[in-house]
Design a protein around this nucleic acid. Structure first.
Lengths: 213, 213
DNA sequence: AGTTAGCTGTTACAAATTTCACAGCGTTAA
DNA sequence: TTAACGCTGTGAAATTTGTAACAGCTAACT
């Protein structure tokens, strides 16, 4: 099975929508309804769901709970998602509170920082270790993904260290494209770039409006 | 001129790379070099740069400063990017420090929150107003984009309020697809979805590796 | 001045992604 | 039981996005 990046992103979104619907007590949902919530088309929803193998019912649509189970199986998150976070600057700390350990399926097992003043503490329920202990800690943690919230200059070095430890997935907030082996997946979130995109298109839309008048 | 979302994103990235190169004293750069830094191909770089109209030199490549100027002109950020931020939770505050007012070209003019306890203060150099003052404040601020860092439940209501005020661009961190008029651009950053993508592909890559053996 | 090497700009091609369209099916209603 | 409706699953078309290839040019060298 090979699904593209985009399909996986949307499936994750459908998963979220379905869990909302389930908690609202809805038992069946049509592709069209999901499409509206996900800002897509019904054909796209159906096509995306094909990769999971789950089949809907021509009259009732999709069974919310069953499809949700199927997606959870598909994502294979039975034991939740385990991660480590590197860099406890303001963004790193914000993510630690965001994924605060409790009912969430996302567990940040440990945070790391190079500044001694920040280590040895608990931040938002997560223990913060010195970066020197990275390799040692990762050995006992097993399979995890890494969240990189550190300055651009330090990101590549850290990515290399992480891949050397066998890390296969990195969520990178540093505005740098990381060079990693083929068997490692990197997802970039570049807030500045996104903001510039928004500003650009906002500008453009304003200008379009002016022209029309 | 109509450039796609993706092209604009990459141009923004080139802009960042060029400003780094300029500060390093590099005067000329080849499409191939930019491609390596941006994790793309040289053809794509050249193709992307076509939309700006700037032309390079077949022997020396692109003049770093000139191309940077051209891109700044293209993005029309001469007076910087002005934004307001809605929601001063942990993520909102992290972004306020990230875009801390100083040499940055990104100015968060004001932050808003519905909790009275958080308003009337200065957070990371940005004054925080009560959400009731949104419409009033926006009038005096002129053209800005909005950054939404608030709970999913509140996002749609706020998006509607913002578009009613004439906002044309929204950077949305809430895990909801916003319904806005056609002349408003929305860029979504969904950290949870991105993390799930990373976890999924990391899983897959690990499995692929096991099969090969 | 003429030649050469190698990069750019751009067109043509290829791949990926989305949308269309419709056969087939399951439920409902008569 | 049968008929009808309307949704799903999916092959095929359309669109979008990325890649390849090459003519043309410019600096450097003879």
């Amino acid at each position: 099975m090979n699904a593209s990046d985009k399909v996986i992103g949307r499936l994750s979104h459908y998963r979220l929508l379905l869990s909302k619907l389930e908690s609202q007590g809805k038992t069946f949902v049509f592709s069209r309804e999901l499409a509206i919530m996900a800002d897509g088309t019904s054909a796209q929803v159906r096509r995306d769901l094909m990769v999971t193998g789950y089949e809907g019912n021509p009259k009732q649509g999709y069974n919310v709970s069953d499809l949700l189970d199927e997606l959870n199986k598909f994502f294979n998150f039975s034991r939740g998602v385990n991660a480590v976070l590197i860099g406890t600057g303001s963004l790193g700390r914000a993510l630690l509170s965001y994924f605060m350990p409790k009912k969430s399926r996302y567990n940040i097992m440990a945070a790391f920082d190079s500044e001694l003043s920040k280590t040895g503490r608990i931040i938002a329920g997560t223990r913060c270790c010195h970066i020197n202990e990275l390799e040692f800690e990762l050995k006992s943690l097993g399979s995890v993904v890494a969240i990189l919230t550190l300055p651009a200059e330090a990101a590549q070095t850290m990515a290399t260290r992480l891949t050397n430890c066998g890390i296969k997935g990195i969520l990178n907030f540093a505005p740098v494209r990381l060079r990693v082996p083929d068997d490692v997946y990197v997802e970039n979130i570049d807030v500045t770039m996104s903001l510039e995109k928004v500003a650009f298109f906002a500008n453009q839309k304003s200008e379009d409006r002016e022209k029309e008048v």
